[in-house]
Design a protein around this nucleic acid. Structure first.
Lengths: 208, 208
DNA sequence: CGACGACGGTACGGTTGCGTCCCGACGTAC
DNA sequence: GTACGTCGGGACGCAACCGTACCGTCGTCG
């Protein structure tokens, strides 16, 4: 009968330690110290550092974010950008997320866990927003949801998590507007959208 | 009289080790092992792990990239995207860059070094491309170069370094087109550009 | 050809973390 | 009130790495 309060303290300590030193240097001893807990209490719950981090991170990252249907593509985009901004401005998250993503590049198990708990969720959100916009006639039918997600999340992630430059006032609405325009104007000449609708499956292989 | 071949071997080993285990777990012993070199040879050149990595990384990252003037905003964008893609697809770089950027979030000295050798260079490129486009009349005069860089590099970085999904064929031209459109159509209704020309300086404060 | 110095290698003491085990204390359920 | 299990804490042997010191070797200048 493990005590939940202890488990919570460990979880909190792992997040703080992840932010402080990163996954690479995360040590069980430091987690135990920070949580005010014996190493025994940790090993009683998880078998290894990887397993512990996977469980804790996926639990946090797996929380589905509610996305309101604002009735407009621009509205949806702005709401989405606002959610992402809020998440990436969180001091813990802004340290942990880039660190884990970098670590995932060399740790397949971690990569898979993040993929399942983060990307799947995010992909659904993207598909929803794009799908609704297509239904409303705001976007051409062939719009590629994956490319759309790149355009939506990429600039914000770059700004907040990589360049780490603060956002000017009214930046989000401008960004939403820009992205909406970019998506709607994807096809230069030929109609059908950026991914060429569905007439050329080779164009969107997406292996793995 | 330190032998240059040895220094080069160490440099190469550091890059490989950085890619393999990341900055957090980089050890001098491992570098020496990989380079086929005694630890002495390393300590003879640098005083610490941080100093060594700073020197080596800044040397690599400081290489200025030549950007041809294609005569078109779309052309410049596509060329720029192609350069970034090539850099981010390099197996070593794709592992090292996200790792160092994540580490920079908690290591001010590393952050400053990366800032100086990477961002300065990149910022110049962005200013050039945007400036030329403004001169040609392709973009409104008030276009914010920083925001433009976000839109240009962000999606590609997200795609290649974070999501790590391969690019579909012809993705770059489409991206260049989208970004060009997004930049030129920043203002929702009133003409004058995304930053409202110069009638409202509050809109583009950009602290720091 | 001789002296100098960087070379690879080894060993050092000290620190840190691993994963396991044992202890006495506490609390709870029966 | 007794028995059980988790608790914090400490100690264990083992491993890795730190930064330094000291070898004998080898190449390169002068």
């Amino acid at each position: 009968m493990l005590r939940g309060e202890i488990t919570d303290a460990i979880r909190r300590a792992v997040m703080q330690e992840l932010a402080a030193v990163g996954y690479g240097r995360l040590s069980i001893e430091a987690v135990a110290r920070r949580a005010g807990v014996g190493k025994t209490a940790i090993y009683r719950r998880w078998n290894s550092k990887l397993e512990m981090v996977l469980e804790i991170v996926s639990r946090v990252a797996g929380q589905s974010l509610p996305l309101p249907d604002t009735g407009t593509l621009r509205g949806d985009l702005e709401a989405l950008l606002r959610i992402v901004t809020r998440a990436l401005c969180h001091p813990l998250a802004s340290q942990i997320i880039p660190d884990l993503l970098a670590e995932a590049a060399r740790n397949p198990q971690l990569a898979q866990t993040l993929q399942e708990s983060l990307r799947v969720n995010q992909r659904d959100v993207g598909n929803q927003v794009i799908g609704r916009a297509v239904d409303r006639g705001e976007l051409p039918a062939g719009t590629d949801p994956d490319a759309a997600i790149d355009l939506i999340v990429g600039p914000l992630y770059w700004r907040l998590a990589v360049a780490r430059t603060p956002l000017p006032e009214n930046h989000l609405p401008w960004m939403a507007e820009s992205v909406a325009t970019a998506l709607g104007a994807g096809a230069p000449a030929a109609p059908g959208g950026p991914a060429r609708s569905g007439d050329d499956p080779v164009t969107v292989p997406l292996p793995r």
